[in-house]
């Protein structure tokens, strides 16, 4: 299963799937509910304002977690 591009090698006895994510409200609701009730912990790393977004999205060192840009403070 890959979302980074088509697999370079096909498994001999299996199925390789390359897929594009779609925005499905029902699934978003399931995910949000899991965050609310503690079943799902988020992995958010650096948070930067939009004025600093270009630098935040061009990190000079590896940043753990998802980078989020705050467009409104």
């Amino acid at each position: 299963m890959t979302v980074t591009g088509p697999p370079e090698a096909r498994p001999a006895h299996g199925l390789a799937v390359d897929f594009v994510v779609v925005s499905v409200p029902d699934q978003l609701g399931e995910i949000a509910q899991r965050v609310r009730d503690g079943r799902l912990r988020t992995n958010i790393g650096h948070v930067a304002p939009i004025d600093d977004a270009v630098a935040a999205l061009n990190p000079t060192q590896r940043v753990a977690g998802k980078t989020i840009i705050h467009v409104r403070p």
Partner: peptide, 26 residues
């Protein structure tokens, strides 16, 4: 778009959309 519950902040909402849907659908 899905409604974002009032007790889930915007940072979290933006942070779980792509990561959560990718995991869910995969």
């Amino acid at each position: 778009l899905a409604p974002l519950p009032g007790d889930v902040d915007f940072t979290v909402g933006a942070g779980i959309a792509m990561t959560g849907l990718t995991a869910w659908q995969g």
